[in-house]
């Protein structure tokens, strides 16, 4: 019997979770300081979970700049070139028509088309790149603590990443004022 296609899709979009150690804070400033300390202790690839964007978290966690601007730029240029190519091919090569006595290849008339294609390519591929980078869409993501979407802030270090040492991390989280330190899946 064939599987329910919706269920198959859901399984595909359900993220795999990893076990690890989580520290939960009630104050976002403490979390940023803790993230800085975790990075300095040599841990790579850990997550911060917050209900809103935190100023300075990128620097604290040492997150390099996203490559999405490059996707936007390159795809914008691609859209622009395709626009030029398409309007030229359609109006001057494949089906030449004289409109208003203008030359077949009239750049001024085609700039709106070229502009729109530039924006379309740049915008859609930026969104696609964002979805790809963020692993979206996610169905039934693992929830460490439901309050992480309202007033709590967490750091999650998956087991076995570079620099992972359970005792030391637990110690560090407590020193940095974590309200809760425990094992979790994320």
């Amino acid at each position: 019997m064939p599987k329910n296609p919706i269920e198959t899709l859901e399984n595909l979009l359900r993220p795999a979770s990893k076990p690890g150690l989580v520290g939960i804070w009630m104050d976002e400033h403490k979390l940023v300081d803790a993230a800085q300390k975790v990075r300095e202790s040599g841990v790579k690839n850990f997550n911060a979970i917050s209900p809103f964007p935190l100023h300075g978290i990128d620097d604290a966690m040492g997150i390099p700049r996203s490559f999405i601007p490059w996707v936007t730029f390159v795809m914008g240029l691609t859209g622009c070139s395709l626009g030029v190519l398409f309007t030229w091919w359609a109006s001057a090569v494949d089906w030449p028509l004289i409109i208003g006595g203008k030359p077949m290849w009239s750049l001024a008339a085609f700039i709106p088309v070229i502009f729109e294609l530039t924006i379309l390519f740049a915008a859609l591929s930026s969104v696609a790149a964002l979805f790809f980078l963020a692993g979206l869409p996610k169905i039934d993501p693992v929830i460490i603590d439901p309050d992480l979407t309202s007033h709590k802030f967490a750091l999650f270090v998956p087991e076995g990443v570079e620099g992972y040492n359970r005792q030391e991390l637990e110690q560090l989280f407590k020193e940095m004022g974590a309200d809760e330190v425990r094992s979790a899946e994320f």
Binding site: G100, G101, A108, A109, I111, P112
Partner: peptide, 12 residues
């Protein structure tokens, strides 16, 4: 600038 130019160029 382009909006001004294109409309004038087009209607001629």
């Amino acid at each position: 600038a382009f909006s001004q130019y294109m409309l004038i160029w087009y209607s001629n």
